[in-house]
Design a protein around this nucleic acid. Structure first.
Length: 254
DNA sequence: ATGGCTACGATCCGTAGA
């Protein structure tokens, strides 16, 4: 089974690229973030015509997540139960016996800001939610834009980023708290080339300079990690005209 | 030099992203 996650930065603007990428990459499941579209305006018909069922937790202008799947999704659940939040960042569904949780973690804006505090509270709620999901679903994948670069090797210039949002110690501790539940970063299950990232700033020729961060991740429960055959970043869509600033992360497992 | 793009929903700029 091939599972991908992609922050499309507006599903409306990126629809043609999304359809091309689905045809080329052929994921069985695709988690999407930053739809910036309410569910009623989600391009469901186009994606169904491409062979994907759609579960959508949409929001106008900001946020919004979806799970696309070849097989129909079951047990669809939006948001984090018990965590009051207007922002549509989380969607879970069961596909082919795999529990899939699509996440768009908060950006955090700046260390110490209100949004940063929200980011840390949000991660604490996600941790508790994933703990309960793992107890119910041994075959669990958590995929999305985490807005955390877990280690310095996931950062193009660790010195310049030191202490900044996305790499600060409390954020990395929140990431490690997910791993402590038994989730594994599928990317690090394998030998990887250096300087592999999933996001590059639109400004400063970020992509051309490979000035990026690895912040889009596929986490797998122990049972799925044991059957994981590959995990990587698909840079192809980032090379197109008018791209998303994120590239898809793709993991294959049995 | 703390900016530099891009998307959105509102106008002819502000908010947000990361």
């Amino acid at each position: 089974m091939r599972l991908a996650t992609w922050n499309v930065n507006s599903v409306k603007v990126r629809l043609a690229q999304l359809l091309d990428w689905l045809a080329a990459a052929k994921p069985d499941i695709a988690c999407l973030q930053e739809l910036k579209t309410e569910a009623a305006k989600f391009p469901r018909a186009e994606l169904e015509a491409a062979g994907y069922a759609c579960a959508v937790n949409g929001q106008k202008t900001y946020n919004g997540v979806a799970i696309l799947s070849r097989a129909p999704p079951a047990e669809v659940l939006a948001d984090i139960p018990g965590f009051a939040d207007e922002q549509k960042r989380v969607l879970a569904a069961t596909v082919n016996g795999v529990r899939v949780v699509c996440v768009y973690c908060p950006n955090g804006q700046a260390v110490g800001s209100d949004k940063y505090q929200y980011k840390l509270r949000w991660f604490a709620a996600l941790r508790d939610y994933m703990e309960s999901e793992l107890a119910k679903y041994p075959r669990l994948a958590v995929a999305g834009d985490f807005n955390v670069a877990p280690e310095d090797r996931d950062v193009h210039d660790p010195k310049a980023w030191e202490g900044q949002v996305h790499v600060s110690e409390p954020e990395r501790a929140a990431w490690r708290a997910l791993l402590a539940l038994g989730l594994q970063d599928s990317f690090r299950l394998f030998e990887q080339p250096e300087k592999i990232y999933s996001w590059w700033d639109y400004r400063m020729l970020g992509f051309r300079r490979n000035a990026g961060l690895r912040i889009d991740h596929v986490l797998l429960s122990g049972e799925l990690a044991r059957g994981c055959a590959s995990s990587g970043i698909d840079k192809a869509p980032r090379k197109l005209e008018r791209p998303s600033d994120h590239a898809p992360a793709v993991a294959e497992f049995s």
